[in-house]
């Protein structure tokens, strides 16, 4: 005898959803309009959502309370759907498509559902965003993980975004990033770029509070000289003693960097080793005294 799910009282339905994984709730919501309504009515809270935007895959990753961020729902494209019988599904407000649903495991052994659709276009991305927004109650600002090649794609307006992570092996054109950031992201506090960068630090980049660049190149130098935010993290940077001297002097004398709280610069393997004496000789320094200030500060890059 099958389960009369829709006939169960609201409390029971909600309790069932609570025992489910996020991807299972998503799949349930695709069963029918009424089941979707049940998921919506359960008003399930979600910690932090990451929208993943890559040319060949769009996904929803969830960072749960105390659990690392991992993928839960993914859409990829398979122009000729094969292997299983595709099913008709309605996503978001009113978008209909055919797709094949498969349950998979991520590297962290998290169950996720992979839905293969014949065409992974802007409509799918928009509908996926709408659908997830309808199902769950967000309790924290969202994040976007985007591939460098997807920056110019047509994307939905992701609301209440506080973090953006740009990834990719190809070189990031800062003009593309500027165009992307000029959309509706008023709450953006953190930008992490994990791809090589081409160009000088743009106005949009300088407006953000916390910036991390994995391969900053020339952009790192201009960003460091004009930075106006709180935290800056430069990995693989190419800097000279003179540049650092100038930066530290300005910061110490309060000639700039009024908001700056944290700086981390890791030198690129190609750059020459820095001569510490050349830096310290130019500055008014005093011996470290543990009585005056602690030896270590803890700062989270958020």
């Amino acid at each position: 005898m099958p389960l009369p799910f829709l006939l169960f009282p609201y409390v029971v339905q909600k309790e069932i959803f609570k025992s489910m994984e996020y991807c299972e709730m998503f799949l349930m919501s695709l069963c029918s309009k009424r089941v979707k309504q049940c998921v919506i009515q359960a008003r399930l809270k979600i910690a932090k959502v990451w929208y993943g935007v890559y040319p060949d895959i769009k996904f929803i990753a969830i960072q749960d309370w105390g659990i690392p961020v991992d993928m839960h729902i993914a859409f990829d494209d398979q122009p000729a759907l094969s292997g299983m019988e595709p099913m008709e599904m309605k996503i978001g407000d009113d978008f209909k498509t055919r797709g094949i649903v498969k349950a998979k495991l991520t590297r962290l052994k998290q169950e996720y559902c992979l839905i293969s659709v014949p065409k992974l276009d802007a409509k799918v991305t928009k509908s996926l965003h709408e659908h997830v927004k309808q199902l769950f109650r967000y309790t924290a600002p969202c994040g976007i993980e985007i591939h460098t090649n997807s920056l110019t794609e047509e994307l939905p307006i992701y609301e209440n975004v506080s973090k953006i992570l740009v990834k990719g092996k190809s070189i990031l054109d800062l003009n593309d990033l500027d165009t992307f950031l000029s959309q509706y992201y008023p709450n953006l506090t953190t930008l992490l770029i994990c791809s090589p960068i081409n160009g000088e630090a743009t106005s949009k980049l300088l407006e953000i509070g916390n910036v991390h660049l994995s391969y900053p190149g020339q952009c790192g130098i201009t960003l460091l000289s004009k930075f106006n935010g709180k935290k800056i993290n430069l990995w693989g940077a190419v800097v000279t003693e003179k540049m650092l001297n100038e930066f530290i002097r300005k910061w110490m004398k309060s000639e700039g960097y009024q908001n700056l709280e944290f700086v981390n610069i890791e030198l690129s393997l190609e750059s020459d080793l820095l001569n510490r004496d050349l830096i310290t000789d130019q500055l008014e320094i005093e011996a470290f005294d543990e009585m005056k200030r602690p030896g270590r500060y803890q700062s989270e890059f958020r």
Binding site: P2, L3, E21, E24, M28, C31, E85, A103
Partner: peptide, 21 residues
Amino acid sequence: ERIARMLRGKNTQEMIKVITL
């Protein structure tokens, strides 16, 4: 939780069979 387990690992078509829509 037992019901949630009945639906675990199933795709949408299989879920529909379990929950009788």
